[in-house]
Design a protein around this nucleic acid. Structure first.
Length: 501
RNA sequence: GGUCCCAUAGUCUAGGGGUUAGGACUCCGCUCUUUCAAGGCGGCGACACGGGUUCGAAUCCCGUUGGGACCA
């Protein structure tokens, strides 16, 4: 008989989906899917004002974007609901009362300020800054007196004061904590809300969670959870603490490191499958040299035992590279579908595309498929395909457009194109090369000015193939317009980097 | 400050007593070409340090240093 594996992902509804959270969700999902287990989505909102529908949507959206699904959760229900902690308050209260009645927890009348103050003193003395347990020994009269002062109690759990608590972690191994060093944690706040410690323990058990997979930041909390489970006579789940994801400066990833929420990566033009692949490689490796792997393969090869203990730095450059790789592997038609919304948002193309126009877009996408690294890249690099309103870059101005010889080349090229019977890559190329020969120039001396004139830039895909994706009339018009501007001296380098080479 | 965790190049990692320490990103160079932001080729670059254990340590142990996490 094998127990049904159940993992859970338990975010707080903060209104954004941090990549660290996404990483944790991903590993829970991978472990469950690899083992034919279930994934539970639980919202831990006992600390927040309450979850708002918007905050929930952010979580759902982030997970769905990455392709992480769940078997039970607030939106789809399940046999262990409700899945939002603020809807489970009676349960926590009942458990807390149970502990108090059994003498395993007690009311504490110290204010947060007092506790904080004493902690500072202990720290200054070089002592472990834990709660000093002074309310443990309060009598009923003491309590009544303190209440009369207007104090609202919180409830603290009595931690063992001797011996060790051993966490046996699948990833971190055996970690030993000295019970004497841990103060009694609050389990029920003055407000009557449970703390994280109580709620996780109660819910993990109530939801039959077999494996708690979470960030390594929770490792020290686990000693509390283990003791709480014992006191409540609940089973211990297995624990796996994942290495943290850090920013470039090796501190916890936060806003000042740039994009930290998964949706920001979507907005930057990342493909979810690339993000998925990138994230899984932070803290896990298949053991060989494979890096880019389809989702199925990741699922089948995944294991918690193969996870790393060391924290990792989120390397944006590598994520970008990987995204580019995914874009290259894609069918042009599919990539075009992904790129299309970006072009629409940039006002470059209409939302409804029909047959020929789709085919045209696919060709454009394909032309740049090798070099674009993000979906968003198309809105800038491919801009000139969709509008005549593009900038002449300084490099193009300096190298070609601001030179006298260019005017003639552009004009004659325009004439040559105009005279063409057919507009295709071969005919275009022959005009360009023919003109170069006629003028006694190398082909590059025609190609580069032409590119600069028609696209405004000095770099891009094959010029011949690019030109034929534009209407011939447009190309001719652009050549003539550019020639005129050049002659009028309008194309001198501008701006701060005008002198830069 | 206390406790815990971690330590292979700038970054992600493989390896785990005997290896020329492998791969990937980045960076640099060369090359192809019609440009590079793409392709091809190549290069720089690592076992944090000090002690042990051992015939032999990057690998095991201890310490130091550094980093991180937690301490409502």
């Amino acid at each position: 008989m094998s127990e049904q594996i159940r993992t859970r992902f338990a975010p707080s509804p903060t209104g954004s989906m941090h990549v660290g959270n996404a990483h944790t969700a991903l590993f829970n999902w991978l472990f469950a899917r690899n083992n034919g287990g279930a994934v539970v989505l639980r919202i831990e909102d006992t600390d927040e004002l309450r979850s708002t529908p918007e905050a929930l949507d952010v979580i759902y959206g982030g997970l769905k974007w990455l392709g992480i699904d769940w078997d039970e959760g607030p939106d789809i229900g399940g046999p262990y609901g409700p899945y939002i902690q603020s809807q489970r308050l009676e349960l926590y209260e009942q458990k807390v009362n149970e502990l108090v009645e059994q003498g395993k927890a007690y009311r504490c009348y110290c204010t947060p300020e007092e506790v904080q103050q004493r902690r500072e003193i202990m720290r200054a003395q070089g002592l472990p800054p834990k709660y000093d347990s002074r309310c443990r020994t309060l009598t009923e009269e003491d309590c009544a007196e303190l209440s009369a002062e207007g104090r609202q109690p919180c409830t603290r759990f009595k931690m063992k004061q001797t011996g060790n608590t051993i966490v046996n972690d699948i990833i971190q191994g055996e970690v030993v904590y000295d019970n004497n060093l841990c103060g009694d944690p609050v389990i029920l706040k003055q407000s009557g809300f449970p703390t994280f410690h109580l709620a996780v323990v109660v819910d993990d058990a109530a939801m039959s969670i077999t494996h708690v997979i979470r960030g390594a930041g929770h490792l020290p909390n686990t000693q509390i959870h283990l003791q709480l489970q014992e006191a409540l006579e609940l089973p211990h789940p297995r624990y796996a603490h994942l290495p943290l994801i850090l920013g470039e400066d090796r501190t916890k990833l936060s806003k000042r490191h740039g994009a930290v929420s998964v949706m920001e990566y979507q907005e930057l033009g990342y493909l979810p499958e690339a993000m998925f692949n990138f994230l899984v490689l932070l803290g896990w490796s298949p053991g060989d040299e494979q890096e880019i792997m389809p989702r199925d393969e990741i699922v089948s090869r995944f294991s918690l035992e193969a996870c790393n203990k060391a924290a990792s730095v989120f390397d944006l450059k590598k994520a970008e590279w990987m995204n580019g790789e995914y874009m290259k592997q894609m069918e042009p038609a599919e990539l075009a579908e992904r790129v299309h919304p970006w072009l629409v948002a940039a006002g470059l193309i209409e939302e409804e595309l029909f047959g020929k126009r789709w085919q045209w877009l696919i060709k454009i996408v394909e032309l740049m498929q090798e070099r674009a690294k993000l979906l968003k890249t198309y809105t800038t690099w491919a801009r000139y395909f969709f509008t005549d309103d593009y900038e002449y870059e300084n490099r193009a101005r300096k190298k070609w457009l601001n030179k006298e010889a260019t005017v003639d080349v552009l004009e004659r090229l325009g004439d040559g194109f105009e005279a063409l019977d057919e507009w295709n890559a071969e005919t275009v190329e022959s005009v360009i090369r023919g003109l170069a020969e006629e003028m006694g120039l190398s082909a590059g001396k025609v190609i580069h000015p032409c590119r600069a004139a028609v696209t405004g830039t000095t770099i891009g895909p094959s010029l011949f193939h690019l030109l034929v994706l534009l209407a011939r009339d447009d190309v001719v018009a652009r050549l003539r317009r550019t020639a005129r501007l050049s002659r009028d001296g309008e194309l001198a380098p501008t701006g701060d980097d005008a002198d830069e080479e």
